[in-house]
Structure formats: C-alpha cells, structure tokens
C-alpha cells in the first residue's frame, strides 16, 4: 500500500486546514473570516477522528461478543487482518477521539456565535463589516479631537 493510500485522510485534513486559514488571513470581511475560522476548526475534527479509526471496526457501543450481532460482526473481519494484528471478537474504533471532538465541536459553535455577535455589533457601530472600511473610520475618528467621556 502506498503512502498516499495510508495517509490520504491526513492530506485532506491539511488541505482543509490551509483553506480555512487562508480565508481567515486573506479576507477582510468579518463574517467571511468567521466562516473560515469554522472551517479551520472543523478540520481538526477530521484529524482526530482519522487516527481514531480502526480498520474493520464498528462504533464503540459495546455488544455481546457471543451474541448474534457480535458473531456476525466478528465473522466479517478479514482473516489475514486478524492474523496480522491478533485482534479477536468484535473490533471497535477508538472512542477517545470521538469524545474530544464532541467537545471541540461545541467550542467551535460557541466561538462562532460570539464572533458573529461581535461582528453584528461592529456593523451597528461602524456601518460596515469590512476591515479596511473599519480601519478608515477609526483613523478618521483618531484624527478628530478627543470625544467627551
């Protein structure tokens, strides 16, 4: 198996991260930057989940290995694979990255909500959500006399 096949997921993760970062850095629109940030954050989910996947695995909801469903799943495993890694019974994917990513997704939506709320307030205060125009407004304000408290 070539390197590309075994690391394909990681390559995709890198592409998605780059896309997200590029949007955040290059765009001047605050909303677009938040979208880029969301893309960037969600790519970490792909990263964690990718290395938690176990070939031939199933979701980490434990079943009775001797029961009908367990037997059926165990029977599906490739004998060569079983021999190579000495796995037995039902194979489960790693639950830990799933837990971590649940947390990360929640953090992502929290960030998105707060960021967009601030962007809405920027629009209300400055009349625009483009960084350049905000800077221009700020510069004009700074050149004028100090406002009263």
């Amino acid at each position: 198996m070539s390197w590309i096949a075994t690391h394909f997921n990681y390559v995709v993760v890198v592409i998605l991260m780059m896309a997200g970062l590029f949007i955040v850095f290059s765009s001047g629109n605050l909303i677009k930057r938040m979208i880029g940030l969301a893309l960037f954050q969600s790519s970490t989910a792909l990263f964690y989940i990718s290395f938690g996947k176990v070939s031939g695995g199933t979701a980490a909801i434990t079943l009775d290995a001797q029961g009908a469903e367990g037997q059926a799943l165990a029977a599906q495993l490739d004998p060569a694979y079983v021999a190579q890694f000495g796995v037995e019974g039902v194979v489960y994917s790693n639950p830990l990255p799933h837990v971590l990513i649940l947390t990360a997704i929640v953090v992502g939506v929290a960030t998105l909500a707060v960021g967009l709320a601030i962007a809405v307030r920027v629009r209300e205060s400055y009349g625009t959500v483009e960084s350049d125009e905000i800077d221009a407004v700020s510069r004009v304000a700074a050149e004028q006399a100090e406002p009263a408290p």
Partner: peptide
C-alpha cells in the same frame, strides 16, 4: 473595542 475584540477572538 469592537474590532479589537473581534481580532482578539480570531
């Protein structure tokens, strides 16, 4: 404070 906070968030 608003654009500063946004920048801080990003």
């Amino acid at each position: 404070a608003l654009p500063a906070a946004f920048n801080y968030l990003i």
